[in-house]
Simulated assay, not measured.
Amino acid sequence: MKRIALFPGSFDPFTKGHEDIVLRGLRLFDEIVIGIGRNASKQRYFPLEMMVGLIEKTFASYPAVKVVSYDDLTANVARDLGARFLLRGLRNTTDFEYENSISQVNRYVYEDVETVFLITSPHLAPISSSIIRELHRYSKNIDEFLPYKLK
């Protein structure tokens, strides 16, 4: 059976930390689907379609990586994709507390799904999408935090 993992998130923007989780996840899974969830209560900073394109370009040489966007419960999307795993990155204990709760709810919705946590590589741990958005908002160069170039 093919080991498919869904790597869900808002990815606003997708960072080098996210890229690191995907690349390391490829050692564990046959296929990784990067799922960009739409959150009706959040206004995106970077347009969804732009982010999908940038992520697809980042992983163009990795046929085992796919990108989708969705507007549903993550567990439902995983089931629909045939993904038995959710891949998540943890930077710190605060991330763990948050992700642990979500993991439990995902198992409630889709009992066959397992969440796999990878600890962020130490040199990438300080990077967060919210910090990058703030730097970008004030016209600071954010290229070193992203695996692609913004135009």
Rank of each mutant, 00 (worst) to 15 (best):
138 Y>S: 07
92 N>L: 02
9 G>W: 07
31 E>M: 02
20 D>P: 01
82 G>N: 09
37 G>Q: 10
13 P>R: 03
95 D>Y: 04
138 Y>I: 15
50 M>T: 15
127 I>Q: 06
84 R>G: 13
148 Y>L: 08
70 Y>C: 11
15 T>P: 09
122 P>K: 10
65 V>P: 04
118 L>D: 13
42 K>M: 12
93 T>Q: 10
14 F>D: 10
144 E>L: 04
93 T>C: 05
143 D>I: 01
71 D>F: 13
71 D>S: 15
135 L>Q: 03
151 K>N: 09
148 Y>E: 10
29 F>T: 10
84 R>D: 13
31 E>T: 12
13 P>V: 11
139 S>P: 01
110 Y>P: 04
54 L>T: 09
114 E>K: 02
31 E>S: 03
140 K>Y: 11
3 R>H: 06
72 D>M: 14
140 K>I: 11
108 Y>V: 12
54 L>Y: 08
110 Y>E: 12
68 V>P: 00
125 A>N: 04
24 R>W: 05
30 D>N: 11
27 R>T: 11
6 L>R: 00
106 N>Y: 01
67 V>A: 02
43 Q>D: 10
74 T>H: 03
134 E>D: 15
61 S>V: 06
23 L>H: 01
129 S>Q: 08
16 K>I: 15
79 R>P: 06
102 I>S: 09
54 L>W: 06
75 A>S: 12
10 S>M: 14
20 D>N: 15
149 K>Y: 03
8 P>Y: 06
95 D>V: 10
29 F>W: 00
130 S>W: 06
65 V>M: 04
57 K>V: 10
101 S>A: 13
32 I>F: 00
26 L>Y: 03
82 G>K: 03
69 S>K: 13
52 V>A: 02
63 P>T: 08
147 P>Q: 03
13 P>A: 07
100 N>I: 14
127 I>C: 06
80 D>P: 01
40 A>V: 13
60 A>S: 14
131 I>N: 07
65 V>N: 06
44 R>L: 13
113 V>R: 00
18 H>I: 08
105 V>A: 08
12 D>C: 11
